[in-house]
Design a protein around this nucleic acid. Structure first.
Lengths: 112, 112
DNA sequence: GCGTATACCTCGTATAACAAAGTATACACC
DNA sequence: GGTGTATACTTTGTTATACGAGGTATACGC
């Protein structure tokens, strides 16, 4: 979906954490996976995803490791850290609150 | 609730439109109303709300009119325009898609 | 040797929500 | 008639985020 530019802000970190938590992944793979698993709703470009991964790693929420298996393009595989799990829980909580607030305010408009 | 700074982005215009659509209101009133109706989840400051109202009016999604009834501090009452209603519908649709995408991706994490 | 899919990296831009500070009016109360 | 509080609006500066557009380089099929 083509979102109104700002709508995604603050949610991306959360769903990336969630997907990485479910299964360690590398960047390029995440681009595909996010699109697939969200049924095309989220389509992050690489220019969005990679810098985000660096940031998450810098905060120690995920940890990347180079995978240089023979006969493969080398790739950096990220897995979630304990700290990342705690963040994910906190973010999910905030997300649920946001949804609750919006539901309260949108009311009928939400089903227009 | 204290949100993670960026999480609200893109949602504020939507719920303001929704509340104004339900009933014409002036700025100061909206600050209170948003907090009340969202059960304290959304607490926009005036420094956030007023500029937003100006922007929405500039886009012709809401229309303000000075109310100078006697014995009252004069206030600017906003009501939604037809264009605003269409926007509200579009925004609500996007919001629902976002929720759907997040639900797909968060999965178990959403109930942690 | 050529095309395509894979995989990663970097820079510039727009703009949004917020805090903080300011102005000014109505009204209750002593 | 002076003080405090709630009402009501305005403006400025800061921070950060998602994105597009561009770039590099490797594996593999044919």
């Amino acid at each position: 979906m083509k979102f109104d530019r700002e709508l995604l802000k603050g949610t991306t970190e959360t769903f990336i954490l969630a997907v990485v938590a479910e299964e360690p992944s590398h960047g390029y793979q995440l681009v595909k996976k996010l699109k697939l698993k969200s049924e095309g709703i989220f389509q992050l470009g690489e220019g969005t995803l990679y810098p985000l991964l660096y940031k998450l790693e810098a905060k120690d929420w995920i940890k990347g490791k180079w995978d240089e298996s023979a006969g493969m393009r080398k790739r950096r595989v990220y897995r979630i850290t304990p700290k990342g799990r705690r963040q994910l829980a906190a973010r999910s909580e905030q997300w649920r609150e946001l949804v609750r607030g919006m539901t309260l305010l949108l009311g009928d408009s939400a089903h227009a």
